[in-house]
Design a protein around this nucleic acid. Structure first.
Lengths: 189, 189
DNA sequence: GTCTATATAGGGATAGAC
DNA sequence: GTCTATCCCTATATAGAC
């Protein structure tokens, strides 16, 4: 099952990383197994040795990032006050997306990823927890709109090709200020 | 070229409308000519009678919406003060996206549409004019980030399936307030 | 872990009849 | 304006050798 030249799961991880790069540029539907194989310099069959289906690759791309988001949501929910929870939630979301700047846009807009998330109760539940964290229970329309705009806007901003010249810290600070304003929060935490 | 049963371009328009619905849900790459044909109850060949290539269909979907955006940018640039220009720009952008709520998300995130726009000097120039309108010349990083977040966030918000229960006016008001805040503008125009 | 080879389906696109 | 039929290519996926 494994070779002695590599640690367990190394080839698998290479597939995931290649998939991330390609999906970021072409979207899930625009990324073929052939493209992934070419990126790695192997054949499609080698990719299929690691994953049974293309969807499995998408899941392998999405899951770990949602894992990081889960940690962020867990930590945010443990904060004592609502204000601190919102603050930690928005910071956590931005941090996760910045650690995955390349692929962040696909999380906001790719229809396949959208469906993968929606079809998975665990992933879907996490999205709802994040929404509840930022919007609170029974939010009014204005709040719902703000959360929607900020969520998508932060993801798209983190991945925006026009902002690749900005380093992570500059981008984090800018997104944070902008998101807090959009949500109608005071300018500091 | 035309039949006596329909006005000129009627079938062509039906193809565009079907494409809009499908692209909104599945993205450009996730939408096949077969799907468009099935949606209309015709064959692929009938669709090809109206458009030579799939990309032509995408262009026909994108162009008229950019036409509306062009009008909005033109009008905004004629305003006397910078503040009025920004205000008209953001209002115009939101209005155009709300008139096309279904497909709005694809304009923010679909890789194929992104490339179609980037490859067309006219469309690309319009995007740059809108950016200049909102950010001004030589914007600092914070402003560039805010414009990026607002642009994508407004498009995604207008199309968000979670907000389909809100009518256009509620959504317009919410997006406007939120966008103005994110850009650091005073709460009214 | 990777290869060649292949099965099967669907994609975009064209030719020519009605 | 639409149809049938077809071409060619690429897609996902599998089988079995090395």
């Amino acid at each position: 099952m494994t070779t002695r030249t590599g640690r367990r799961g190394e080839a698998r991880e290479r597939v995931v990383q290649a998939a991330v790069r390609l999906i970021a540029r072409h979207g899930v539907e625009g990324t073929s197994l052939q493209m992934i194989a070419d990126e790695l310099g192997v054949t499609k069959a080698a990719v299929y040795h690691q994953f049974q289906t293309k969807e499995d690759i998408v899941v392998a791309v999405v899951r770990p990032i949602f894992g990081e988001l889960l940690d962020a949501v867990d930590a945010a929910e443990r904060r004592p006050t609502r204000a601190a929870q919102v603050d930690a939630g928005i910071r956590g979301l931005i941090d996760v997306l910045l650690r995955h700047r390349e692929i962040a846009a696909a999380f906001a807009g790719d229809p396949v990823i959208f469906n993968v998330v929606r079809a998975d109760a665990e992933l879907n539940g996490l999205v709802e927890r994040m929404g509840l964290l930022l919007a609170g229970p029974d939010p009014d329309p204005a709040t719902r709109i703000a959360v929607s705009l900020v969520g998508s806007g932060v993801a798209a901003g983190a991945a925006d090709p026009a902002l690749t010249d900005l380093d992570d810290d500059t981008l984090r600070e800018g997104l944070l200020v902008c998101a807090r304003r959009a949500l109608g929060l005071p300018d500091n935490g």
